[in-house]
Simulated scan of single mutants.
Amino acid sequence: MSDTPARRGRPGYDQGQVLDVAVQEFIAHGYDATSVAALADRLGLSKSALYHHYASKEQLLEVALEEALGGLEGVLASAQGATARAKLEYVLRGAVGVLVEKLPYVTLLLRVRGNSDVERRALERRRVFDREVTALVRAAQDEGSVRADVDASLATRLLFGMVNSIVEWYRPTGQEGAAELADDVLRVALDGLRR
């Protein structure tokens, strides 16, 4: 849900509820194929009532992507640990936590293709995030705490390929919560399946 202060709308929707429905529609039909009229219809609002909450469809997308990107960037900025490996583990654990907590928003982020200025800015932020994680992987390799025989940028892609795949199958109603899921990701990603 958005950290944006709630503003009450005509039939009782606040900004967070409108955003949640918009994200569901963007995921189901694609951002480009979702019209403001379709969003208003899904909410049972007029288009003008929808504009009471958000100035444009682009603003909805921007706020939704900020939910995901802000969470991931926050984890990276607060990475803690005495070693590069500990910081990498913190980031991976935190990324899983953000994904579980903001599942629809991260799902939307992962489907962005760069067809608008908002999407292109989001993709650039993802690239910066990836470069910073790659630097952490490289630092962990330099300290000898993770394998150095895999290129750091490839390792980052593989790690986040695994983390990002969670959006395709994870259901919050399942038996495993974010902490247990993060433990499993770290075991497989950093320790491997080999006995």
Rank of each mutant, 00 (worst) to 15 (best):
T4A: 08
A6L: 10
Q15K: 12
Q17V: 08
D20I: 02
V23A: 15
Q24M: 12
H29C: 07
T34W: 03
S35M: 09
V36R: 13
L39S: 05
G44S: 05
A49L: 00
Y51K: 10
E58Y: 10
E58R: 07
E62H: 05
A68W: 00
L69M: 10
G71N: 06
V75L: 06
A79E: 13
G81D: 03
G81N: 09
A82R: 12
A82F: 04
A84I: 10
A84S: 12
R85E: 14
R85S: 08
A86R: 12
E101S: 12
K102E: 06
P104C: 15
T107Y: 04
L108Y: 02
V112K: 11
V112F: 07
R113D: 13
N115W: 04
S116A: 11
D117M: 07
E119F: 00
E119R: 02
R120Y: 01
R120F: 00
L123R: 08
E124L: 09
V128F: 06
D130H: 15
A135I: 02
V137P: 13
G161K: 13
G161R: 12
S165H: 15
I166H: 15
Y170M: 03
D184V: 12
R187G: 09
R187Y: 09
D191W: 10
D191I: 05
G192V: 04
R194D: 07
R195F: 08
